[in-house]
């Protein structure tokens, strides 16, 4: 289980990742680097707005009933399982790249959320979670009298 937290919008490792990617591109290894959806550590995107946050998670081949979402304070946990399509003894595998098994991804959100109003949709293998910020975390405009 892994956690990440950047202070605000500041991504400390962004320059390093850009450099790694540039190096890979120079060495012609881009394809390796760009592989997606694999294994038991699904990639996520986090977007933060003024009233809500949007988390996207790449879950190719995971069924809706196999996904379990939970929120505790500022922590969102996406759990699930990727099943094999066929029984091992029935078929002969030529190639096996897709990961199989349980996965769990913990996302520390930038703000507190209103857990009762969270909505999640799954479309074409991408899970989109809309998390409204809790009242206290929303920006409030104070009129100057």
């Amino acid at each position: 289980m892994a956690t990440f937290r950047w202070p605000g919008n500041l991504d400390t490792f962004a320059p390093l990742r850009v450099m790694a990617r540039e190096l890979d591109r120079l060495m012609g290894r881009q394809q390796e680097y760009q592989q997606v959806g694999g294994g038991v550590y699904p990639p996520v995107n986090v977007f933060s707005g003024s009233d809500d946050m949007v988390v996207q998670c790449e879950l190719a081949g995971v069924k809706r009933e196999d996904i379990d979402l939970s929120i505790t304070g500022e922590t969102l946990v996406i759990k699930g399982a990727k099943h094999t399509a066929a029984k091992e003894e029935d078929v002969r595998y030529e190639r096996r790249e897709r990961g199989v098994g349980e996965f769990s991804r913990t996302v520390v959100l930038p703000d507190r959320v209103e857990p009762s109003q969270v909505q999640a949709t799954l479309k074409d293998g991408i899970l989109t979670i809309r998390l409204p910020k809790s009242e206290a975390a929303r920006p409030r405009q104070i009129p100057v009298k």
Partner: peptide
């Protein structure tokens, strides 16, 4: 850029 998707191939 183009991404190489992951595949499983098996024979029934």
């Amino acid at each position: 850029s183009t991404v190489t998707p992951l595949v499983d191939i098996y024979e029934q």
